[in-house]
């Protein structure tokens, strides 16, 4: 199968939807000729016109609100926010407006907020955060975090088709990573986790940037005779609780790994999903979580690596649980 990058997979997904549906448009800072801060929209303005690939002023509140208004009146906006940290600049529009519009007016808000999330590029503490748990905690929003080019394309297409505001968090470290993406069109439904690897001794439940690290760890552990199952949630809202419960029952050992701050992070929700279900009775050992410590993300290169779950840390944790 052909291989394309994560960035190009997202672009393909968006472009396909835009060709099919004239009401879909994309806007954001420097997404036109510049091609976006991470090159996702490169070449789109040439193909799809500047009326549909729109450069905005540095006015996040205005264009986020504009997206909501246009979504409620027949258009399907995709907003590119350069860094997910900038959502904080337009929090009101996302939390109090976009998420509440259907509840308030019984009106659909078919919009996608695409944004570069997470660390790994030395962008320091205002440009590296993983804030997904904050959005997952706001009813009305959907939260999607693809970890491969294949998932990214299938999920962005479903996100665009969805009638609700979808926060689409792209791992910026993945943009240039290549993966297999078929030429034929496909969609991946929101809310379906993906078993990235089957195993029988322990389940690692993860999503986003950590999927890659976890898979690498699982491959290494295989050589040491530990069979690791890896479940990639792909979307936090809706959450595939069935898949979580199923894998927990299957292996009886669960490690949760995410990039976001561990304290009050989404891992707590995954853990609760298990212990509140009958999977609790299948557990052979305590569920464990790995995530970022309770501190901002440092600029220093080696520290920026070290503070997140690494192959070494995950391996050590798995072995302690066996």
């Amino acid at each position: 199968m052909r291989k394309i990058t994560y960035a190009n997979a997202i672009k393909e997904g968006i472009s396909e939807e835009m060709r099919k549906d004239n009401s879909v448009f994309i806007m954001g800072e420097d997404i036109g000729v510049y091609g976006g801060a991470f090159g996702v929209t490169k070449g789109m303005i040439e193909e799809l016109s500047k009326e549909r690939v729109i450069d905005t002023p540095v006015s996040e509140t205005a264009f986020m609100g504009l997206a909501i208004g246009s979504a409620m009146t027949g258009l399907k906006p995709i907003v590119e926010l350069m860094f997910s940290d900038f959502m904080a600049v337009c929090y009101d529009q996302i939390i109090n407006q976009a998420a509440k519009m259907h509840f308030a007016f019984n009106k659909k808000v078919p919009m996608v907020i695409r944004t570069a999330s997470g660390a790994g590029t030395g962008a320091s503490f205002q440009h590296s955060q993983s804030l997904e748990q904050m959005y997952a905690n706001v009813p009305g929003l959907k939260v999607v975090m693809p970890a491969t080019p294949y998932d990214a394309k299938g999920l962005i297409k479903s996100a665009i088709k969805d009638d609700n505001p979808v926060v689409f968090l792209e791992s910026k470290e993945f943009y240039n990573d290549e993966g297999e993406v078929p030429l034929e069109e496909y969609y991946i439904p929101l809310g379906k986790a993906d078993l990235k690897r089957e195993g029988k001794d322990i389940s690692i439940i993860t999503y986003g940037r950590m999927v890659k690290t976890v898979l690498e760890t699982a491959n290494q552990l295989e050589k040491e005779g530990i069979s690791v199952e890896v479940l990639d949630l792909r979307s936090l809202v809706p959450l595939d609780t069935d898949a979580i419960i199923e894998t927990a029952k299957k292996t009886g050992r669960v490690l949760i790994v995410h990039e976001a701050v561990k304290f009050a992070g989404f891992g707590g929700e995954i853990l609760s999903t298990i212990v509140e279900s009958d999977a609790f009775n299948y557990l052979k050992t305590n569920i464990k979580r790995l995530g970022l410590g309770y501190h901002p993300i440092p600029f220093n290169k080696s520290l920026e690596k070290e503070v997140f779950p690494t192959i070494e840390k995950i391996t050590k944790q798995v072995k302690e649980m066996m």
């Binding site: 940290d85 900038f86 904080a88 600049v89 030395g122 320091s124 503490f125 205002q126 440009h127 901002p296 440092p298 600029f299 220093n300 290169k301 520290l303």
Partner: peptide, 29 residues
């Protein structure tokens, strides 16, 4: 990104501060 940096190497180019000298930093936002 060194410890002797103005922000202990924890900030980088967008977070250069020296409060003693009245420099409340470059800013990423």
């Amino acid at each position: 990104g060194k410890k002797t940096g103005v922000s202990l190497g924890l900030g980088g180019s967008m977070h250069l501060a020296d409060i003693e000298k009245g420099i409340f930093g470059t800013n990423g936002i």
